[in-house]
Nucleic acid binder design. Structure first.
Lengths: 123, 123
DNA sequence: GTCGTTGCAAAGCGTTTGCAGCCTA
DNA sequence: TAGGCTGCAAACGCTTTGCAACGAC
């Protein structure tokens, strides 16, 4: 029952925390393998699922793509992806706006939002 | 090169057009098989991909779920899913709001939005 | 008759799981 | 030492693809 602190878990969490953008499983695997070369994919998935369950990390779902992961507590934000250079930028300040879209008598509990277009540099 | 009009394609498009909500592949398959019992999954996927390429239909991506499909031209809208009864409701009128979230010097070309919470009846 | 389309089965990709051995507490 | 954790490989669900037969034009 006790939560154990393994090198694998530290490596996965470390990779996520050191990255300024959300990471996919392949990214996590190759970064974490610098610290733990024998790390397997299955273990990464199991660690991610444990961390998700304990709400230490959060998933970022871009439509039609494999999920990305980032540490919890980075605040509520969404992402803008540049269609040309694929960079991801954070966007904040959506809550007041979205409340207006909710039909009356409905309770809005959460939302997902994803913007895409051209970034500053590519414009 | 010419576009052919097969029973399979008619059945798939028919299923989508007769439904008031977006459908998943399994739904499409079972509805369209009423008209074409031998219809295979692979064919459904191929038809959907052709229709997507020709922009006759559109995908609805709910985070972490298999994609749904609906005919193009139903207008720009997003979905609200009730967490209790799983019903999907349409939501419109987001564009003016989202422009405000875009950083200056960025060009917003599109977005995806998904709301969830409790619907009228479940509230 | 042509050649786009179909059905089947196999393969692909991301993710999960069974199992035996490992290692943290 | 116990039992959570790991690595491997097999299995999974969804989607795509190779191939030979089919059928719309």
């Amino acid at each position: 029952m006790a939560e154990r602190n393994t090198r694998q878990k530290q490596a996965v969490l470390g990779a996520l925390k050191e990255s300024s953008t959300p990471l996919g499983v392949a990214d996590i695997l190759s970064i974490a393998r610098e610290a733990v070369p024998t790390l397997s994919q299955a273990t990464v998935y199991r660690i991610l699922n444990r961390l998700l369950k304990k709400r230490k990390i959060v998933t970022v779902q871009l439509p039609g793509e494999a999920p990305l992961y980032e540490p919890a507590g980075r605040g509520h934000h969404h992402f803008f992806r540049c269609r040309r250079c694929q960079s991801m930028y954070e966007v904040a300040g959506c809550d007041e706006l979205l409340g207006r879209l909710t039909p009356s008598n409905f309770t809005l509990e959460g939302h997902d939002l994803f913007l895409y277009g051209l970034c500053d540099s590519c414009n």
